[in-house]
Design a protein around this nucleic acid. Structure first.
Lengths: 188, 188
DNA sequence: ACCTGAACACCGTTCAAGT
DNA sequence: ACCTGAACACCGTTCAAGT
């Protein structure tokens, strides 16, 4: 084993550790505070050391949304489709509450990464089980995802701050109802 | 008149002219290119001159979303509520297409400005005409606005780029249908 | 292999000075 | 009143140099 050897050295940095530090800074002080030097400082390293693990600042931000999606718990497969969808929507909303600075980026990135595809596939699978054919499911997935992301982003960014939490909870419940209606009513 | 006097001097800058220049740069080169010096240069002025008309960069960005909302055409009052809503939603979508860099900011700002209130009031008025009481209308407005903003933002940011325009048009039509169903079905 | 020091071009912002 | 020059602290990024 080389444990003792590794433990004797200064903690090595890696892409995950960098993303973790960046996410923590974003959560605590906002996206503007996520600076190459700030992230590096939190890891006891200089800013230039980061460039060996991330291509640059843009790649770091891409990594942040990647990290958010990775945190998303997959829905329990044995639940009925409706509960699976509600579970996913709730997970998105709570992720927005935990990471209000980073979450809005989800709506602005290609959604072509592996993690994004996994979440999308989960939604599509639930919709397929609800009786939609693949094409209908794909379209419904796009509409449902944008609606939920839009709501969670608004809430996280403080666009609904003048409404108390119970009003926003009721808003969210109403959104879930509308989604359920969209699915069961079938395509229009 | 002091016309000749004014015309003799170098074109004065103002908050509207600054916002216009910033919006043009954002449309042409993206949000990252909207820099105090770039905006100033487009107006043949130094960066420091801007500070007399905007409080700083953040205020300038707030002004950009303000400018987008001001561009939104009010719906013709004599149309039935459904067409008014579709008109508003379409205007948002085309605004996103025209200003893809700035549009995502709409979901991230308080929506407490005067222009935001006007758009919101237009939606609420249409919903009231559809038979919803004020409280229902306010809730439906929040859900509809976030869904439409979410869709338009996704499209503008290129999140749907792998789908051809006619698919996205059909997506949008489906969204409008779902909204109509949400309204006529009543609150759930 | 991995990190650092030094350097570069650029950013937002201030404040006294010009006209 | 309105704009400029000079200056400051900071940003992302590079590249040769250290270990």
């Amino acid at each position: 084993m080389s444990y003792t050897y590794l433990m004797g050295r200064r903690a090595q940095i890696s892409r995950p550790s960098i993303l973790g530090a960046a996410l923590a800074i974003a959560d605590e002080q906002g996206l503007a505070a996520v600076t190459m030097s700030a992230v590096a400082a939190r890891l006891d390293v200089t800013a230039m050391a980061l460039y060996r693990h991330v291509a640059g600042k843009d790649d770091l931000l891409d990594g942040l949304v990647e990290a958010l999606l990775t945190e998303m718990p997959p829905p329990a497969a044995e639940l009925p489709w409706q509960q699976r969808l509600e579970h996913l929507a709730g997970a998105l909303r709570s992720s927005a509450a935990r990471h209000p600075a980073v979450f809005p980026l989800l709506l602005q990135r290609p959604a072509a990464t592996e993690q994004a595809r996994q979440v999308r596939d989960n939604v599509c699978a639930a919709l397929h089980q609800a009786g939609l054919d693949p094409e209908q499911a794909a379209r419904a997935e796009r509409l449902i995802s944008t609606a939920v992301l839009g709501f969670a982003t608004s809430e996280a960014a403080g666009r609904f701050d003048h409404h108390p939490p119970d009003v926003r909870d009721a808003d969210f419940a109403c959104l879930l109802n509308a989604i359920h209606a969209l699915i069961t009513r079938g395509p229009a």
